[in-house]
Write a protein that binds this DNA or RNA. Structure first.
Lengths: 221, 221, 221, 221
DNA sequence: GATGAATGAGGGTTCATTCAT
DNA sequence: TATGAATGAACCCTCATTCAT
């Protein structure tokens, strides 16, 4: 099983109007993408405050002023990163909750999805950034809640409620607090950044153990 | 049940020699405390980088230079906050793990302890700061792991192992991953800062539900 | 007799590639020069430590940050002043030592050169700065010794040795201690800054008298 | 031959009034001396601007505030150092000029005096400080000129004039520019601080060679 | 659009000086 | 008199943002 998550998020104004994008528009969009990726790298490595736009520009291969052609200021750039990279993820999860798959299977898939598509990619950094910088960026937290969290939670709650009704699940509280399911994954992201050098954490095993406790032992794999 | 956590951390050289501290020494120590408290407020509200020592001084009612009489630099001030407020907490937990109390009781006590002595106090802010700034301050993360985390984990693992041996607990994996027990508490700290205005989280209920799943339903309360 | 000493020191990258420098590059280079001149004025008047880059910027007509576009820090700016103004001087002296001119004539020319091109210009200030700040900036002293002093001394020693061999000069010790020739010039620089208001020193006459003693009376002038 | 130069310069107000100084006055004077010595060490090593009164106090074994009981401010302390350590030197030189000794002998004695009592002692540092900081402290330069330089120059000029009249000396210009005699000594002080590590300078040999040129070869030593 | 030189407000840190004890 | 904690002005350097080319 794998989840294909689209990479290109934002289409140019020209595209949105249905026109064929000009060569210039294509180049411009490519620059924008380069800036976003470079900025993610820098923000991940240093956090918002310590990131210098000079470095972002250098890494993106553009001039510093170019950043301001695409983003109003440093903060807008930061928010746009989250906006553009986390969006696609939601649909994937929503699809899984809606599909007609046994709950235990979904849970296993989510573990794998997290390990592979979040923990093993830059999405880990984005989620970390939301956790570490969200307090300073209320609008970002709001966007993230509205566009990502609330939708995932709603999907999860619905599916969990069905699971309770169907007897797939014995802990009804999980439908009230789906956060309990995700908590170890969040902890793992924090832990990996701070404490892995002292005590590495096997994330997959951690999450599997967690799911076994919450949803009962898996059958043979 | 309540846990007494010492407040005063450092005694002056004069005190250590058994002398009565002079009025001057007392005022100096008070200033130091004021700086620590002011700094915690500012760091909590703005994060490390965005905190201005000017504001810390103003809030503490001292001159900017005074900060440097007590702390080598901004980073040392930051580390000292963690050191002085989290240190006493560890002993309390270690005591609970070592005492001859049923595991289920300990778990309940820890939930209450967390809600009252961490979530309801500035310790919540400290833990949040460690999670959000630890990546940028490896030494802080190291100190926290060494002085706080590793000791709590060790105590928890030992107690959990005994619990498994005695049949107090059915999920042996918890002894390997005590992080699973703490994960929702960490999540709650993050959540409260970012998303409570959209969807408040009843931390006590969250943690109780979690413990019920992990350790079985409580008897009558 | 006159000594042409080049003024422009560093050419821009564009120039080095043979391109016509852009208007922007020209303005940038002009700013750099302005900063160097302003800094020399300030350093001369106040010494290294007491010079404020704020004042340098103001005098140069640029913003404070602009200084840092051209020089890594205050010290680098200081060293660059020495580098750019003293460098060209060395070649001039070396040429004189190598040329086929009677020693007595060289000596007279050097006196005039010093009076006109050092004592009468900002080079006096630079040499004074090296004497007064060199102890605090070992790298500067090293640079000055390597790039200026040692080369002048080597040239002087070679020429003096030839002079001894040819019977142009009666005091062989001068070839061992060419510093004896330069000492009054150095003293004059110090003196002019400290004591001229109490007792002015006629530098040209001082140096001529000195050379007459060292190398014998000049013929008719 | 040796020159005894008094060390204690300033007597306490009590002493000046002819009273026997009290124990307290003695301790106070000792403190003052300690501060002067400590300050000389620090000023010599770092220059005026870079010297911290904290370090001076520490080295002198007194509290920072104590410095201000004895000296109005940092600058007054600096000037007092020069004032108190160079004063005694003048009398010694004046005596030599006035005594009935052959000029060539005086010259030799001065070389030895300089090498031993200046170059080999902290007086070297004081003279260096005057040269390096005098521009920033016009009052210091004035004091030094008035109390030290002008008196030495006057004595030297008188003796040199007698020397010319008596035929002891062939270069009459030296009576006009006695600075020519001292220049290499000044140069040696500068050189030793900046360039000795690259090219050590034998000061005694330098000065002897210089005197031989100015006043003719010595007889047997 | 793209550039990058220029700007200047801002903040961490130092240290001479003061003053209550 | 002596202390040393406290003060706060001063200054170097950074970096987000602007704008002429």
């Amino acid at each position: 099983m794998a989840v294909a998550i689209k990479r290109k998020i934002v289409s140019s104004p020209a595209e949105q109007r249905g026109k064929t994008p000009s060569a210039r528009a294509i180049r411009s969009a490519a620059r924008r993408e380069a800036i976003l990726h470079a900025a993610l790298d820098e923000f991940s490595a240093r956090g918002f405050a310590a990131t210098r736009l000079d470095d972002v520009a250098k890494r993106a291969g553009v001039a510093k002023g170019t950043i301001y052609l695409h983003f109003r200021d440093k903060e807008a750039l930061f928010q746009e990163i989250v906006r553009s990279l986390m969006g696609p993820f939601v649909g994937t999860l929503e699809g899984m909750f809606a599909a007609d798959i046994p709950l235990r299977t979904i849970v296993d898939q989510i573990v794998e999805l997290f390990v592979r598509e979040v923990f093993g990619t830059r999405r880990k950094d984005i989620i970390r950034l939301i956790m570490t910088e969200g307090l300073r960026f209320p609008k970002l937290a709001e966007f993230y809640y509205r566009e990502v969290l609330s939708r995932i939670l709603a999907g999860a709650r619905a599916r969990l409620a069905r699971g309770v009704a169907r007897g797939e699940i014995s802990h009804a509280a999980l439908a009230r607090f789906p956060q309990l399911i995700a908590a170890p994954a969040m902890l793992a992201i924090i832990w990996s950044g701070l404490f892995d050098r002292f005590e590495p954490l096997d994330v997959r095993e951690l999450l599997r153990a967690h799911m076994d406790i919450l949803f009962g032992e898996r059958k043979a794999v």
